[in-house]
């Protein structure tokens, strides 16, 4: 999202480019498609979040704040008691943020050294390393999540292996814990962390490290004080690319977690399944999630412009 690619002007030529004058016509199909089938639907979702719920799923066209009210307040079974703060949904959102943050940290701890290692390989082998990292990403997310679940089940190969080697006596319970969800999210989005950091380290000028070395900085001081500040935009980009999809993830929490690890994705999904659902509430929860994501993206855009101004 670094803005528009700059257009090199064809020097000494006054004639217009081949595609001058028809930019709007060329862009129109994408505008129509995304505008009509995504932007308009999001606007409609906003409207739906202010409507009244219909009991068979769907809405009644009557304006209401009930969805947002339900999110924050508990007014008793019949809605006539004095409102108290309802913690259920706030907790689910808080937990989602926490889980997504931990998954991001996990990705960073493993992704940073990996990205660095790959970026410092000879140019002809980098492509192969990157390819190895990205292949799993292109394997169906559902299949990856199911595979992870199969591996870490109580009676799964991991526990069998650990028991047979005598490292443990009884299986470790991993499925249905917070850790399983973090592991699943880590597994889902790790390449998003590696790729931007790789790109940043690849552009890094190692003369800076050499200068630090010559001035008797240790390897780790150089890493901390020189390399990391310089490649920070890449690190931030990686963190955001992992954090955002983790926040609204559905498969990892649903398959690897249990009732105790309920996250936003499952909460939203539940509102649209069958007659027990509540469309306005689901729309409101989606709007809140979308607002959070937009806030993170705005923060990111500001960081990037600042980094861009500082570096060049």
């Amino acid at each position: 999202m670094a803005g528009l690619p700059s257009q090199p002007s064809s020097e000494g030529k006054l004639s217009a480019g081949v595609f001058d004058g028809i930019a709007i016509r060329l862009l129109a199909p994408s505008w129509l498609m995304i505008g009509f089938f995504l932007l308009l639907p999001v606007a409609m979702m906003l409207v739906y979040s202010f409507l009244t719920k219909e009991f068979r799923g769907g809405v009644i066209w009557e304006p209401s704040l009930a969805a947002y009210d339900q999110f924050i307040f508990d007014r008793g079974l019949f809605g006539d008691e004095p409102p108290v703060i309802e913690w259920t949904y706030i907790t689910i959102f808080g937990r989602s943020i926490w889980q997504a943050a931990l998954a991001t940290v996990l990705c960073l701890i493993i992704g940073f050294p990996t990205a660095y290692y790959i970026a410092t390989r000879p140019a002809n082998t980098r492509g192969v390393w990157l390819f190895l990292i990205t292949i799993p990403y292109w394997v169906n997310l559902l299949i990856r999540t199911v595979s992870m679940k199969f591996l870490i089940r109580d009676t799964g190969p991991l526990n069998q292996f650990l028991i047979s080697t005598g490292m443990i006596d009884s299986p470790i319970h991993i499925v249905n814990t917070n850790f399983a969800v973090q592991l699943g999210l880590f597994y889902s989005y790790l390449p998003f962390m590696v790729l931007p950091i790789y790109a940043a380290v690849e552009r890094y000028n190692f003369a800076l490290s050499e200068a630090a070395f010559d001035l008797y900085a240790s390897r780790w001081t150089t890493l901390r004080k020189i390399l990391i500040p310089v490649v920070k935009p890449g690190i931030i980009a990686g963190c955001i690319l992992v954090f955002i999809p983790s926040l609204g993830a559905f498969l990892a929490p649903d398959l690897l977690g249990g009732a105790k690890t309920f996250m936003i994705g499952s909460l939203i999904e539940e509102q649209f399944k069958g007659s027990a659902g509540n469309w306005p509430f689901g729309a409101a929860a989606s709007m809140i999630l979308l607002s959070m994501v937009l806030l993170v993206l705005m923060f990111y855009a500001r960081q990037q412009t600042r980094a861009g101004n500082g570096a060049r």
Partner: peptide, 21 residues
């Protein structure tokens, strides 16, 4: 921004919006 909108909106939100639409 519009072209990249599907990348920025979380999948579950796109799903809800499309269903409602």
């Amino acid at each position: 921004g519009l072209i990249n909108l599907p990348l920025m909106v979380p999948e579950i939100v796109s799903a809800v919006a499309t269903l409602i639409f």
